[in-house]
């Protein structure tokens, strides 16, 4: 948490940035419930490959998504270093498996850019905005797109 930029601007958004598949992503900190270490997930039959399974989060069943696989990136090494970001989206909770959490950033909303509509790659559809922090491009994840559609993942 070295280069936290404190913006006093009223219209700014706080982001939790992290690395996944060798790239920098972030999510709106308002949707982050907690960050926890990886645990052995119970795999779900017939689940898409990016669904690692479910883990016990203090008595509730938490689905774990392998974010790298979801974004179509090279899946990171599954190791003890893996971290799970627990996010809540309209009452639906899921854990996103990432390589490592980097920082908390406050980004003025006017510094956010819509991603250019040229990339044909999968990850494009999961990015809702882009911003530059210290010369690094940070992708802001569209959590709605990342979550498996509730009624289809079984297929």
């Amino acid at each position: 948490m070295t280069d936290t930029e404190k913006q006093t601007d009223t219209s700014s958004i706080e982001l939790l940035s992290f690395r996944v598949g060798g790239q920098d992503y972030s999510v709106d900190i308002m949707s982050v419930r907690e960050i926890r270490g990886s645990a052995k997930a119970t795999s779900l039959p017939h689940a898409p490959s990016f669904v690692k399974g479910v883990i016990n989060l203090r008595g509730t069943v938490l689905p774990i998504l392998d974010l790298a696989a979801r974004l179509g990136l090279m899946a990171g090494e599954e190791s003890e270093r893996n971290v799970i970001i627990v996010v809540d989206l309209g009452g639906r909770t899921a854990g996103l498996m990432v390589d490592a959490v980097s920082d908390i950033l406050a980004i003025p909303t006017d510094e956010m850019q819509t991603p250019p509509d040229l990339a044909a790659d999968d990850a494009r559809t999961f990015v809702s905005a882009l911003t530059i922090v210290n010369g690094k491009m940070i992708r802001i994840l569209d959590l709605n797109a990342v979550m498996p559609p509730q009624d289809e993942e079984a297929a």
Binding site: K40, L44, P45, A47, V61, L62, P63, A154
Partner: peptide
């Protein structure tokens, strides 16, 4: 423990439970 609330329906699976070792089955 229901799966539908957090994940969705899984064919062949009714629900989940937490075993004595804390693992989900």
């Amino acid at each position: 423990k229901g799966l539908e609330g957090s994940y969705g329906r899984v064919p062949g699976i009714a629900a989940a439970t937490i075993l004595g070792d804390g693992q989900i089955a």
